[in-house]
């Protein structure tokens, strides 16, 4: 799913990078100093989850879990996923550097969309219904991600359109896997530690400008 350096045209790279910079900005506002450890450890967990492989017949796919990432982290999914892709590109040689903005947008935009569409269902309803919302979020995030990849490729040239279609169809089994997996994870979290769902996504960034503008003050208030 990672797009490599050299495949995209300059305007596509510029648009993707602009979206990612804006998303990271909004995400960082969700991370006052007292939330930094939680954001750091949770994003490291999502990084590790993406190293898990599931075998489908003779081949295997790695998890993306960007739907779950959006449900748990909200807008903070943007910086979290950016850091994950950056470290992967540098230390594992996976993905690309000039396209990192596009690659981040491709998985973080669906994460934020899932956050807005599925969060209410995941948090408010019974654990069983929450699991169904989790499944919707898990599948939707992958579908949207393949859609974004396809869009980025097809804007870069018509010759990429067959590859983009292939990406979409190749990911249908991944959607099914991630749907079941996200549902199970959401069910477990609702049963064991529902506070996890309030750690980040309690309010959208525009609803908490005061907290974001005065992180030191909010830290002081939690300390007292």
């Amino acid at each position: 799913m990672h797009i490599v350096d050299g495949a995209l045209t300059l305007p596509v790279i510029a648009v993707g990078s602009a979206i990612t910079v804006a998303g990271i900005g909004l995400g960082l506002r969700q991370m006052p100093p007292e939330k930094i450890p939680a954001a750091g450890v949770l994003s490291a967990t999502f990084f590790c989850a993406s190293l898990v492989h599931m075998s489908i017949g003779p081949s295997s796919v790695h998890l993306i879990v960007n739907g779950l990432c959006g449900i748990v982290l909200g807008w903070a999914a943007f910086p979290a996923l950016f850091v994950a892709l950056l470290l992967q590109a540098i230390f594992f040689g996976f993905g690309g550097l000039t396209v990192i903005g596009v690659n981040t947008a491709n998985i973080a935009v669906p994460a934020v969309i899932v956050y807005y569409l599925c969060r209410r269902g995941v948090v408010r309803s019974s654990p069983q219904v929450a699991a169904i919302w989790g499944a919707v979020g898990g599948a939707l995030a992958i579908a949207l991600t393949t859609g974004c990849v396809a869009l980025a490729l097809s804007f870069s040239g018509d010759e990429f359109i067959p590859a983009a279609k292939l990406v979409f169809f190749a990911h249908i089994p991944v959607m099914a896997i991630e749907a079941v997996l996200t549902a199970a994870a959401v069910y477990l979290i609702r049963r064991v530690k529902p506070e996890l769902l309030d750690a980040f996504s309690a309010a959208s960034p525009d609803l908490q400008p005061v907290l974001a503008a005065a992180p030191e003050a909010s830290l002081r208030s939690t300390q007292s």
Binding site: T45, C48, V52, L181, A183, Y187, I189, K193
Partner: peptide
């Protein structure tokens, strides 16, 4: 796997 990832997240928090 979903339970595994969910448990990892809970432990992480």
């Amino acid at each position: 796997m979903g339970y595994l990832i969910g448990m990892m997240l809970i432990r992480a928090l």
